[in-house]
């Protein structure tokens, strides 16, 4: 099982800046949600592809947190404001309302305390953008039902004993958590593995069956 931690193309040694076409498709979808000039924190920013794009194309004040030291070093060497750290331990130190948008891409399922991370995101940011792999996808359901073993799919492709994804959830589970916490879902969509928008975005039930990834924009209620 694996939610694909970011692995965007590394910056060239000549300091080549990212352009949108180099960016992973789901990051492009996230970038579309963020208005020009916003203050953004990208948690799990990898080598900073989204940060570089938001800085260059939208004049954003974009900062990042990355748990992998090699990726963080690459991002810093590209001139981006990235710190080595993680969602569970570093968000508590930011002041209330420090950002317009706080982004957590394909990482929620791997944090120790997802509920607390979401709380922190909406404490330090006005909006939270969260993407996660959907454990309710039909292939996952089918594999568990038919074989009686933990699913192994394109999205969830690491064995249960070595996956970093300790908190998988489904799209409907996530809606429930938002209701429980009183978060307003400003937009949501389900996408396939490559980040293409899927046609079943009107129905949460259908999205939960056919969507491989989910993308939510939230605010406090």
């Amino acid at each position: 099982m694996d939610g694909h931690p970011r692995a965007g193309q590394g910056p060239g040694s000549g300091g080549i800046r990212y352009v949108a076409k180099n960016m992973r498709l789901d990051l492009r979808l996230i970038a579309e949600m963020i208005p020009a000039g916003a203050k953004v924190l990208d948690i799990g920013c990898g080598d900073g592809a989204l940060l570089a794009h938001l800085t260059a194309e939208k004049g954003a004040d974009a900062r990042g947190i990355e748990i992998d030291m090699a990726e963080a070093t690459r991002a810093v060497a590209a001139g981006l404001a990235v710190i080595h750290g993680d969602a569970d331990h570093d968000l508590a130190f930011y002041p209330d309302g420090a950002f317009d948008f706080v982004v957590l891409s394909r990482t929620l399922q791997a944090v120790e305390r997802p509920r607390e991370v979401l709380r922190q995101m909406l404490r330090i940011g006005r909006h939270a953008v969260v993407s996660f792999p959907n454990f309710g996808h039909w292939l996952v359901r089918w594999q568990l039902l038919s074989a009686g073993r933990m699913p192994m799919t394109g999205t969830w492709h690491r064995h249960w004993y070595e996956t970093p994804n300790i908190h998988p959830c489904t799209i409907r589970d996530f809606f429930d958590l938002c209701a429980l916490e009183g978060y307003v879902v400003e937009q949501w969509l389900a996408v396939d593995e490559h980040g293409m928008k899927a046609p079943w975005r009107r129905s949460a039930r259908l999205a939960n069956l056919f969507g491989e990834q989910a993308l939510f924009q939230l605010r406090r209620g």
């Binding site: 030291m69 963080a72 404001a81 990235v82 710190i83 080595h84 930011y94 420090a98």
Partner: peptide, 17 residues
């Protein structure tokens, strides 16, 4: 770094192996 974050400063941080 955490104090700088609390001050909303723009900060990069790496630990070199």
């Amino acid at each position: 770094v955490r104090a700088l974050n609390a001050a909303a400063a723009n900060v990069s941080f790496v630990e070199i192996a």
